[in-house]
Each structure stands twice: as C-alpha cells, then as structure tokens.
Design a protein around this nucleic acid. Structure first.
Length: 905
DNA sequence: TTGTGTACCCA
DNA sequence: GCTGGGTACACAAG
C-alpha cells in the first residue's frame, strides 16, 4: 500500500474532515482577544482569525481529501420541544461575537469549503450523519469539535480531534483514547454522559455520581439499559440517588443521542478540496484586515491543482512507500535501505511507562518502514539490535532520550545518534517552549506540509492500537523527522551550536537517560513516619489557630478567606498588594506578627510550614515505583539558561534550608548492593564564574586566597580587617554578591535585606567601588548583548533577547536582568554538564559499579558500590574540578552517608 | 474540566 | 519590583 496521499487525486483514499462551526468559532472567540482583532470598521474578527488558523493547521497536518463545516441554525431544534430547558441558562452571545459566523462562512466560500446547516437540527447531527456515512463506506472521518457528544461517533475510521487549549492545540481521540480517558468505549459514552449530566446543555445528571462511578457501573452492567434494569441492586447513597433520578437520566440519553440519518449532499462532489480561489480569499482577508502571515499559511490544497505552483516554496514532497517488513524481511531492510542511516519515530507515551512501545518507524529519503517490536523472531530481533547498536549508522530522532527509554527495556541498545531535533531546536531558540514534532513541522516545513506528523503531542502521543492509521501516523512522524534533520542541522550551524549539540547535549541525553532509568531508592516507611508526625502537628496548630479567631474554621489555605479574616475582621494593617487583593505570604505575615503579636499569625505560619512538608512528602510517596525507587525525568530543553529541570517528581527542590525539611532527605537511601550515597557540589560556582568573566582582580584574589568568600568581600567593602567582619556585614555583602548575578536592583536588595532603598544603594555602590571590574563587566556585557542580540555562555550557548531594545521600560529592564544572569547561570550549567559527561565516562572506564543518580544544578548525587569509595571520590572531585578551566579554581565539596541527609556536608 | 493566581520548595 | 525552575491548592472561568 502507499501512504503518499495527494489531495485532489481521485484515486486517493477519502478522508473527510468535519468541523463543528459554531463550537469552534466560539472557542476561537474566547481564545483570542476581541479587541486585538478588528477589521478597522468596528467589527471584531478574532473568531474568524482563530477559526481560519485552526482550519489551516488541521488541513495541513491531517491531510483530509474532503472538508465540511456544520453550523447550528437559529430558531432552535427538535430537542427544545422535548425538553424546554435544553441549553437554558447560557449567557447571552457576546456583542463582539455577533456577525463573525457570517464572516466565517464567507471565508469558507472563498476557500471553496462547503458548509451546511439544517433547520431543526444541530451541527452535531450533521456531523454524526456524515461520519456515519463515511464509516459505513469504510472510509475515514476526522471530527473537530469541542462538544463531548461527538465522542459517541468515534470508532473504526472515525477520530475526534478535541481542542485542548484555544483552537490550535488538538487532542486525538480514537477508541483507545476514549476508553483510557473515560473508561468506557465511545459507543457508551452517551450512557456515561446521561448519568453524569452536561451542565453546558442544562442537563442535570445523578447527584453524587461523577464519571468514575458512572464508568464503574457501565463496566459492570454493560450499558445504561443494563444498569437501569439492575438499579435496585445498587447499594449506598449513589444507588439511591440513581433510583431517584432515573427520569432525568432517560431524558439525558434521549437528548444526547446524535441523529445519524439526515439527508445530506454527497461528499465526493460537494466536499472536495481544491475549489478555492486565491483572489477571492485575498479579497475576504483584505476586508477582514488580516496580515500576511495567515495568507502565507494557507495550505495549497485549498486551491485548484497547478495554482499552488505559482506560490513560492510550495514544494510537493512525496512520501516513500510504507512497508511493514516482518521476520527475515526486517534483516533485509536493515541491511539494505536503512544501512546508511535513518530517522526514527516510536510510539508510546509517558503514562504508559517505559518499554511499552510496540512499533518503530524508520525513514530515509527513499524508504519508509514500520517494525512491530512485539512480533520479532530471533533473526529479526538480532538484526534490529545490530542495526540500532551500530554506531556507524547515523540515527536521528525528535527525542533521543525518550527513544532510548522505550527501546532499552526491550534489550535494544542504541548507538550512533546524530541529531536530536528537540535539543537542536532548543539550542537555537531556548526561550521557545519545547516544541513537539508537529510544532517543528509547522515552523520548518511551512510550505511543504504534506509530510507532517499528525497530532503528535510532546512525546509522539500516537495511538498504540497497532491500527493501520496508527502505523501511518508513526510513519509520517519518522518521515517528518527525516525531512527536518537537515533543516535543524543548518539551524545549528547558523547559531554556532553544532558542538554544543554534538559534544554536550546529545551525549548528556544518554547519561540522563541512564540516571532516570536507575532512579534513587526512597524509603516509604520513613516518609510515612514523617507524615504521621506532621499530621499531628498540623491538627494541633490548626485548632490553635481557629481558637484565636473565635473558632471560625476557615480554610487556612485560602488566601481569599485569610484576607477576609486578617484585613477585615481583625483590621490588621494592609501590606503588599497582589493582583487579586492583599498579600498573605510568609513575608507579609511575619511583618504583621511583629506589629500585632497576634497569635493567629504564628499558628498560621506554622500551619503553612507543616502543610507544605506534608504536600512534599505525599508527592514523593506517590512517585515511588514498584522497585522502591523514584525515577524523576530530567529535561534539557526547558530552562532557557541551559540548566536542567526535573519533574514527576521534581527532585531538584527537596527541602534543605530548615532542619525539619531536611529530614525528608533522610528518606533517600542507598540501595542494596551499594554502600553509600555520595554528594559532590561546587562551592560558589556562580561567583567563581563572575570572577572569571569579569577578570576583577579583587574577586579573583578572593578565590585564590582560599579565604571565606563573603568574609573576604565584606572586609573589602566595609574596609575592615577580615577578622573584624561581623555577621551583618557578611550577610549584606553576600546578598549583594548573589544579587549581582540576578540583575541587582536597589529595590530588590532593600527588600531582601529589609533595609531602606537608600541604604541598599549605598551598599551596592560601596561594593562596586571595591570591585570595579565586576561593575564594568556587567555594564559591558549588557551593552554587548544589546548590540548582537544575544548573550553567550563560556561554551557559546546563546540566549536571544530582543527585548533589550524594547521601548517598553518594564520589558527592557527585565531583559537586562536576564542578560546579566544568563551567561553566569548558563556557564555554571555548561560546566556541570561537562563534569557529568566526564564523570560518567570515567566511571565506565574504571569499570566500577558506582553510578550517578541525580543532578541538582551544582551538585551530583552518586551511589557508591562496596570498596569503591576512595576511587570514586577522587574521580568525581577531579572530574568536576577539572571539567573546565577558568581563572579561579573550581572547588568541590564531598559528603558521604547512608542517606542523602547524611551525605550532606 | 480547565486555566490562572498565589504561595513556597530548590540552586 | 533581583535569575532559573516545579508542584499544589483555591478559585473562577466556560
């Protein structure tokens, strides 16, 4: 079979895109500001614009051959006659929305897209009828609708694209996805909806019954009918509630059943794409005052064949024929077409767990194959293992760490990675949110969208059903990766980031993958014990708090209720303002306590602390896996400075500052077969980088002298002997030192130190007087960044800051602070990344069993095997200390212990 | 349900 | 209102 589908080609399989016009227009209206989009004559056009964007995106990425848009008609439907309260209670149509439906229809006319409305019926019924027709013919339908009633239509060949955010981000709902999300098959979704109710339609369900209960019942009795027949058997409150509301449920089920037999025009003639008229489109867009971007993004398929050629860059790229080799064919394919390298895409998703991917797609310029990982015979498996581990065969993926996670548990090791598209994109545009494959395609293959990956979320969230459609989507993803690779390589070159990609980030991704897979052992019993302690405290302190405000049991976690108590009932002086009222944060509460001595405040603060601790403990416990370990995920493409981030759970923010919080670290323990946890951290790495980059002699001397940094700096700033420096002097200069790297302001400093702004200014000026090199460096580096448009780290990692030349003072000053901080924070990130590569390589070379578990920005946590402590300690200290040479020594501290707490130093 | 704001944990 | 992150909760939207 072939997967190169040419829209407009009569021989191509038919794929009908069905759009709920009203629902999507309404969503677009709320997604975009009505005041920001007008035609210049007072008519808002935001819904039209958003709708057009959505349409273009979907057509580009889903490649339908036919399109139809369904609208609701004014004047009500048959449903209103069944239930007079149907859709009652909806707010009036916003003034600025009025008229935009007509404009959308005008736009559709120019695009040659058919739109339909049927008196007495809803758009949903039109869509249901057309989708049913397609399904009965064995053809495909794609539905774009925010109405959940459309879920019942999902089935073989019928997929629902639900808007997740705005109108451009769509979630792909196929039968498996519906089942997973709602725990019922699509066919029975209306049963579930009838039980739960639908507030948007003013259909109330069974009180006390949510989707979970409803799904449980339906699972047990098969269907709503089955359930109602056995309604008497259901025990408990929910059962009684069901019996009390049977009539509502029956009514809901009648109302939410889609009509599937409307008489509608035949698609082949009426819904074909390619009947648009560019001149007409331009005229309509002129009228709407749309800019050039959206015109450029108009997919060529809307226009008659040939018309596209007049547009620049409208290349027509054919996808190679898709094959699904099995058994011996796999060995042949891998030693043949793919022996020179390939792009790779893999199914699966984060929720599924690692190693549960079932298919692997490979693409070259001329070949495309999907392999079933669950159906490999011995020879095929060996051939695949050899191919993947052959480092002379270059491989590309959108997310190599993820691919490794899926393949490695199946015993498939990968070597020979050449490009990681996600990392490459990040190095070129670090301030962009991480781009999924579809996003990359949109950015890089604008005019060649025939080859997009469809519906991929961040981790290629393709359905794992093994259907032909899933294979095709996966194949398209691999093909897109292949097409994108040279574009991203060119991008890397343009941003001078090849070395960062090839020698730093890409190798690091493999190290991080291992760290994630290993995880760190966490002792649930320790956490449970801590939690129980905190629970007692929490209750006690809450009771005490309530007693001080007259016994009113307010929600202590609600800022709104706290404001009412503190500022209205108790009439305490109002402090800092927030967007929504007056602040109740710890700083404000502490101030208030000093002023009023009100015991409620002390209890409240204590309650906050203990509640926070319980939250952290509870989150960690939730993430302990079957192997008693916590496997965080490290991200390389989130923090714009180049730092890593960690989530699910975040192990980079485990409490440290207070004794009580630190106890949580006692739950992270060394695992069996290992002897100790070892922590190694850089001391004051950011200030050392500051010394290096600024070349300030005083600061360099401070580090070379080996004296305590803040003591040394304070003695200079306050002009006293080092042994005369008191605690206040030290903490003040320490705050300035740290503030420097953050883009110090007198205001920020004054708040941090709780001193006047005048005093803060004097302090900063005094500091700069003694460390003029630092002042000059900071000033010059901002100017340099303004000139070239970006900042740079010691390894040449760039961060583009267009706001440095903004007319908006707020934006500009913010960009200036970022410009001060990024080279410093980013260089520190570069250095520890180098250290991680080196430590990992050295551990391997030494043939030891010890391993790196975590990175916390300036710290590494390792697990040390018996008898390896001395060797590993030396190796780590050297690896970190010599990771990169700067003009002052990089000092590394080490601690060892059975737990993370004991390993602190 | 979903996004937003607030608060607070880390380096 | 001094940098970079992540998570949880309350609350208000749709």
């Amino acid at each position: 079979m072939t997967s190169s589908e040419h829209p407009g080609n009569a021989a191509a399989p038919t794929r009908l895109l069905l759009i709920d016009g009203h629902a999507m227009a309404f969503r677009a209206f709320f997604a975009l500001p009505a005041d920001g989009f007008t035609d210049g004559r007072g008519q808002s056009t935001n819904a039209v614009y958003g709708f057009a964007r959505m349409l273009f995106n979907v057509v580009a990425s889903e490649q339908p051959t036919h399109v139809a848009v369904a609208f609701d008609m004014a004047g009500g439907t048959f449903r209103d006659r069944i239930y007079d309260q149907y859709k009652a209670g909806r707010e009036e149509t916003p003034q600025q929305f009025i008229g935009q439906i007509a404009l959308i229809q005008k736009t559709l006319d120019a695009l040659g897209v058919s739109w339909l409305e049927v008196p007495d019926y809803e758009a949903d019924d039109i869509i249901a009828s057309l989708a049913t027709r397609m399904r009965s013919r064995g053809q495909e339908a794609l539905i774009v609708s925010s109405d959940r009633d459309a879920l019942q239509l999902v089935g073989p060949g019928v997929t629902l694209l639900q808007p997740v955010k705005g109108v451009t981000e769509l979630r792909r709902m196929d039968p498996a996805a519906v089942q997973e999300k709602y725990q019922v098959d699509p066919e029975h979704y209306p049963d579930l909806a009838a039980l739960v109710g639908e507030s948007a339609d003013n259909l109330s369900g069974v009180p006390g019954v949510g989707p979970k209960t409803a799904a449980k019942w339906l699972g047990k009795y098969g269907s709503l009918e089955g359930l109602l027949e056995h309604a008497e058997e259901i025990t408990g409150k929910a059962g009684q509630s069901l019996r009390d509301h049977v009539e509502d449920v029956r009514r809901n089920r009648v109302m939410n059943a889609a009509v599937t037999d409307l008489e509608l025009p035949d698609d082949d003639i009426v819904f074909t794409l390619g009947r648009g008229d560019r001149a007409a489109v331009n005229e309509v867009f002129d009228d709407l005052a749309f800019g050039p971007t959206i015109r450029r993004d108009l997919p060529a398929v809307f226009l008659p064949e040939g018309a596209a050629d007049e547009e620049p860059g409208a290349a027509d790229v054919e996808m190679p024929e898709l094959v699904r080799p099995r058994g011996a064919e796999i060995a042949t394919a891998l030693s043949g077409p793919f022996s020179g390298g390939a792009a790779l895409a893999i199914d699966g998703s984060w929720e599924l767990g690692l190693g549960e991917a079932t298919r692997l797609a490979l693409a070259t310029a001329t070949d495309l194959a999907v392999l079933d990982l669950t159906d490999l015979d011995g020879d095929a498996e060996q051939a695949l293992a050899n191919w993947l581990s052959d480092r002379s065969i270059p491989k590309t993926a959108h997310d190599t760490k993820y691919a490794v996670h899926e393949l490695s548990p199946r015993g498939l090791q990968v070597d020979g990675w050449r490009t990681d598209l996600g990392l490459a994109e990040f190095l070129c545009r670090p301030d962009q949110r991480p781009t999924d494959l579809a996003g990359l395609v949109m950015r890089h293959l604008q005019e060649e969208l025939e080859t997009t990956a469809s519906g991929s979320q961040q981790t290629l969230d393709l359905d794992g059903g093994g259907s032909a459609a899933a294979d095709e989507a996966l194949a398209r993803a691999a093909h897109a990766v292949h097409r994108l690779e040279p574009l991203l390589r060119a991008d890397l070159e343009e941003h001078e980031a090849q070395a960062l990609h090839d020698d730093l980030e890409l190798p690091l991704a493999q190290v991080l993958g291992q760290m994630e897979a290993v995880g760190i052992q966490a002792e649930d019993s320790v956490l449970a014990e801590l939690d129980a302690e905190h629970e007692r405290q929490q209750t006690q302190v809450a009771e005490s708090a309530f007693s001080h405000i007259g016994g009113d049991r307010i929600n202590l976690g609600s800022p709104k209720q706290l404001q009412e108590v503190l500022y209205e009932r108790l009439e305490m002086p109002k402090g800092r303002r927030t967007k929504t009222g007056y602040s109740t944060n710890a700083e404000t509460l502490t101030d208030l306590f000093e002023k009023t001595q009100h015991p409620f405040l002390a209890d409240l603060l204590a309650h906050r602390d203990v509640t926070k601790m319980r939250q952290i403990i509870e989150t960690l416990r939730r993430f302990i896996a079957e192997d008693s370990r916590i496997h965080t995920t490290f991200h390389q493409n989130i923090a714009a400075t180049g730092r890593l981030s960690s989530n699910n759970p975040n192990l980079q923010n485990i409490p440290m500052r207070t004794e009580e919080g630190r106890r949580i670290r006692g739950a992270f323990v060394v695992s069996e077969g290992y002897e100790q946890l070892l922590t190694a951290d850089y001391s004051q790495i950011e200030m050392r980088i500051m010394a290096h980059l600024s070349g300030d002699e005083g600061l360099i001397e401070a580090f070379r002298s080996g004296e305590d940094l803040h003591n040394f700096v304070a003695s200079r700033v306050f002009d006293v002997e080092p042994d005369q420096v008191d605690g206040a002097m030290r903490s003040k200069t320490k705050a300035v030192s740290y503030g420097l790297a953050y883009g110090l302001s007198a205001f920020g400093l004054s708040r941090q130190l709780r001193i006047s702004q005048a005093e803060a200014t004097a302090l900063r000026d005094g500091y700069f007087e003694r460390f003029g090199g630092v002042r000059d460096f900071l000033r010059e580096s901002v100017e340099q960044a303004r000139k070239v448009g970006y900042t740079q780290t010691i390894l040449g990692r760039r961060r583009y800051l267009p706001d440095l030349t903004s007319d908006n003072r707020q934006r500009r000053e913010n960009a200036e602070r970022v410009a001060l901080n990024s080279p410093i924070q980013g260089s520190a990130a570069d250095i520890i990344k180098l250290a991680m590569l080196r430590v990992d390589a050295d551990l391997r070379a030494a043939g030891v069993a010890s391993r790196v578990l975590l990175q916390v920005h300036d710290e590494l946590v390792l697990e040390v095997a018996p008898g390896e402590l001395e060797q590993v300690r030396d190796l780590v200290v050297t690896g970190m200390g010599d990771a990169y040479e700067i003009s002052v020594p990089l000092s590394v501290g080490v601690g060892v212990g059975r737990t993370w707490l004991e390993a602190a130093h």
